[in-house]
Design a protein around this nucleic acid. Structure first.
Length: 422
DNA sequence: TCTGGGGTCCTAGGACCC
DNA sequence: TCTGGGGTCCTAGGACCC
């Protein structure tokens, strides 16, 4: 049977989440900032229109913000994560085959749905999400995932489409591809776009027509797959079950520049704790750990370094990981620098139930240590997120990122519910 | 004088994504 | 004053082996 994919993408997702709880900002310019209130990472159409660029440092936009009364929010990922879950469960009711691609995007397989009418069905999905979550979405429908991405762009860019565009019965796909710059295609980044344009390929139609041999020789198989998809031949797999992560990273910019070793140790311990929790959540144990630190690259005397080591036997026990991480930190920490950020990366995962045993070292699985972690995770996963933590993380966390314009956790905390005054 | 060739595995780094 | 964070996959190149 012919494959059909719908890509549902939330419009300005973080901004849309904030607007659900601040309806007065509906037609106002709104932006959401990255962690530490750094750059604009989500912008409403109105904010784009007044000239706030994607990724622009907000301190460089102060004039625009003041002039156009732009509403500015710190990132509130607890809220966005919860809203994302609501959107995804709504989508799940429209297909048995859903691939959650990112926090604000999902592919739906619509194979076998042709008698319903794809366009009609797409509109139904769109209004259901709007109704049940308050989030506006765009829907692109096509025979491949890459074309569904293109269709989604068209739906988003052309208001007359009503937020839904379908390639399936489209007579002239090529006419649309010709209008699509090569840089906008899923999988073609700045580097490849530049290379392609130097060889006279500037739009999606030209890329679609490029000879396979030339692509294979000058670019990667990834790009060849993209080309096949533009031709309507599905070449990127549809993954319903989310595979376990192969790497888990936690890193943050500090609220201020940190020099003291003990503060760095606290931060590293806190990040390890967060990363280890994620590792346990997917039922893994980590076999490798990396710690990295960095000074501000925008200032003089830049220093960055990292250190890593294998862990045998692999573990997900926070106190042990904290010990190792601190040891690694001491190898790269240099006095006298003002550090801007640090982070940890856990990799080489194996299943917690199937670890290679070590003859001499105790094993994490089925130990009192594992049970302790389970109790702690269980407690922190309820409404008590982050209340139970290790002393190594420090109690005050003065170095923690700045978030001066954060909205409440409306959907996950009883004490932060939305209040409506009548 | 003249210094093989092919395979595998691992790692670091780059490109790309949202 | 002030510039995010978290992922995946591919490739090139080195180490090592026979």
């Amino acid at each position: 049977m012919k494959k059909v994919f719908a890509l549902v993408d939330c419009n300005s997702f973080y901004v849309s989440c904030e607007r659900v709880f601040h309806p007065a900002f509906k037609n106002k310019p709104v932006v959401v900032l990255s962690n530490n209130d750094g750059c604009a990472i989500s912008r409403s159409q109105e904010a784009k229109d007044v000239g706030i660029a994607m990724g622009a440092p907000i301190f460089k936009c102060e004039q625009l913000v003041k002039q156009h009364d732009v509403k500015v929010f710190s990132a509130n990922f607890v809220l966005y994560g919860d809203m994302s879950g609501r959107v995804m469960s709504t989508l799940a009711s429209f297909t048995p085959n859903l691939e959650i691609y990112s926090i604000d995007e999902a592919f739906l397989s619509l194979e076998g749905f042709e008698n319903l009418g794809y366009l009609f069905y797409g509109r139904k999905i769109r209004s259901a999400v709007r109704e049940r979550t308050g989030i506006p979405v765009s829907v692109g429908i096509a025979p491949t995932k890459t074309l569904a991405k293109v269709a989604n762009h068209i739906a988003k860019d052309n208001p007359r489409m009503g937020g839904v565009f379908c390639f399936i019965d489209e007579k002239d796909i090529d006419q649309w591809l010709e209008k699509t710059p090569v840089r906008e295609i899923w999988g073609i980044g700045a580097e490849k776009a530049l290379f392609l344009s130097r060889h006279g390929i500037t739009n999606a139609l030209e890329l679609k027509k490029a000879p396979d041999e030339w692509i294979k020789k000058n670019l990667t198989i990834m790009t060849l797959r993209t080309v096949m998809e533009l031709r309507g031949i599905p070449s990127i797999t549809f993954e319903e079950i989310q595979p376990n992560k192969k790497a888990i990273v936690t890193s943050r910019t500090f609220g201020y520049e940190v020099s003291a070793l003990n503060e760095m140790e606290e931060a590293i311990s806190a990040y390890i704790s967060k990363a280890a929790e994620k590792v346990r959540h997917q039922g893994s144990v980590a076999g490798h750990i990396q710690v990295f630190i960095e000074t501000n690259p925008f200032k003089g005397s830049y220093y960055r370094n990292s250190a890593s080591v294998d862990i045998t036997p692999p573990t997900a026990y926070t106190p042990q990981l904290v010990e190792i991480a601190k040891r690694l930190l001491s190898r790269i920490y240099k006095e006298g620098y003002r550090y801007k950020s640090c982070g940890v990366m856990l990799t080489n995962f194996s299943d917690e139930k199937m670890v290679q045993q070590d003859l001499f070292a105790p094993v994490y699985s089925d130990s009192p240590k594992q049970r302790l972690m389970k109790v702690m995770d269980g407690y922190n996963r309820s409404a008590n997120a982050g209340q139970l933590f290790f002393a190594a993380e420090g109690a005050g966390k003065p170095w923690f990122m700045k978030q001066s314009r954060k909205s409440k956790r409306f959907t996950t905390r009883w004490d932060e519910l939305l209040e409506i005054k009548i």
